[in-house]
Amino acid sequence: MSEAYITRIAKFLPNQSVSNEEMEEYLGFINGKPSKSKAIVLRNNGIKNRYYALTKDGVATHTNAEMAALAVKGLFKSRPEDIKKIDLLSCATSSPDQLMPSHGVMVHGYLPETSSVEVVSPSGVCCAGMHAFKYAYMSVKIGDKKKAVSCASERLSPVLRSEQFEDEIQQLIKLEQNPYIAFDKDFLRWMLSDGAGAFLVENAPNKEGISLKIEWIEGCSYANEEEACMYMGADKLEDGTLKSYKDFTLEAVLEKSIFSIKQDVKLLGEKIVKLGFSKLKNILHDKGVSMDDVTYFLPHLSSYFFEKKIDDFFTENGIPIPKEKWYTNLVSVGNVGAASIYMMLEEVFNSGALKKGEKILLAVPESSRFSYMFCLLTVC
């Protein structure tokens, strides 16, 4: 089999960054009043800035597919002619612009410079970006493709606007006592961000500069054991099953805000760290990898609230990672869902700090029904 390498990484962030103080100017006020829980939620998640593909009036400035295409074009900024050589486009998102056609072909539609290539659209939430990456990696690995692009993008700001929500839940005492209770619809308003990232995966490293050899990508799902935790376009019933938007009347869809994002906060607190990172411990053991071998650890965090919990888990399980090895840009770009891991790796890759032989461990937990993806890269 061929080897596979990430040779270029690019990102696209729409418009200017939005500070914590400006958020409600873009997302609006529920019932015309400022949020009373916003400050508490932001204190827990630690985010200072994020990006929205809309104006303060709620007018879209970019589609999801357009942002993904702009990230892809960014891969070829120095050599525009190379975009014609792409032989695979693997595109992921949890927030497509439409149900049909697929997100991937819509991205391809914004790339008239390319040829008629294979296009795939992995679905999911945060792990979807890694699934798109793995498809590109495997296609190059088996020799089927030579120049594969994977990308991930999100445009969730329209569903975070105030008109999409029911009356805001005001439970400040509970929020202070138990931060998990904030991880509901209101929490998600202050966390999510828009943007896109892209990888170029090839069968040979760059002749000049660095590349990232893809050592392995491993994933797992606990959906056979756990009910849904985060969902959209459905309502959660008392027995834990989801009732699809297709099975509601139009009136009920609006009344129950079926298309807002919701989270089962109790499940999130109990499960998100221990399930996935127990699996990572087993993967590292099976692959013969020690945390001592890792130079950079890039975890996708929905909130800095989970940073200590992950750190504590590693320490308690005998696989500690010193904090100086951790890297995340959550504070400056927010949670961009499936695209977050692309944006973190882009900053590290283009920082000028990487040295050949260093290893980078990626970790992407997804709370929707408890899925996880992990990847080890070597700088070469």
Score class of each variant (00 low, 15 high):
308 K>P: 05
322 P>Y: 00
244 S>H: 08
222 Y>E: 02
323 K>W: 04
30 I>L: 01
349 F>T: 13
345 L>A: 10
171 Q>C: 09
99 L>Y: 05
155 R>A: 03
364 V>C: 09
267 L>C: 07
157 S>V: 06
77 K>G: 05
43 R>M: 08
330 L>F: 03
218 E>N: 12
147 K>M: 13
75 L>Q: 09
47 I>F: 11
5 Y>Q: 00
356 K>F: 02
258 I>E: 05
163 E>M: 12
334 G>L: 01
265 V>H: 15
162 S>L: 02
69 A>H: 11
30 I>E: 00
348 V>K: 10
173 I>N: 15
33 K>C: 10
208 E>H: 08
223 A>Y: 03
249 T>H: 11
88 L>C: 06
276 G>V: 10
181 I>S: 15
156 L>I: 13
369 R>N: 15
32 G>F: 10
229 C>Y: 05
178 N>P: 00
134 K>F: 04
332 S>Q: 10
163 E>Q: 12
88 L>H: 10
38 K>L: 08
43 R>T: 03
176 E>W: 06
51 Y>N: 05
186 D>C: 08
118 E>C: 13
282 N>C: 09
20 N>H: 07
57 D>G: 06
204 A>T: 03
189 R>G: 00
89 L>T: 02
307 E>S: 11
196 A>L: 09
54 L>P: 00
11 K>F: 09
371 S>W: 00
234 A>K: 04
36 K>Y: 05
124 G>I: 02
279 K>H: 14
230 M>K: 06
226 E>M: 13
290 S>R: 14
214 I>Q: 02
13 L>A: 12
280 L>D: 07
92 A>K: 00
277 F>D: 03
95 S>D: 10
217 I>V: 15
63 T>H: 04
203 N>P: 02
21 E>T: 07
90 S>G: 01
228 A>P: 02
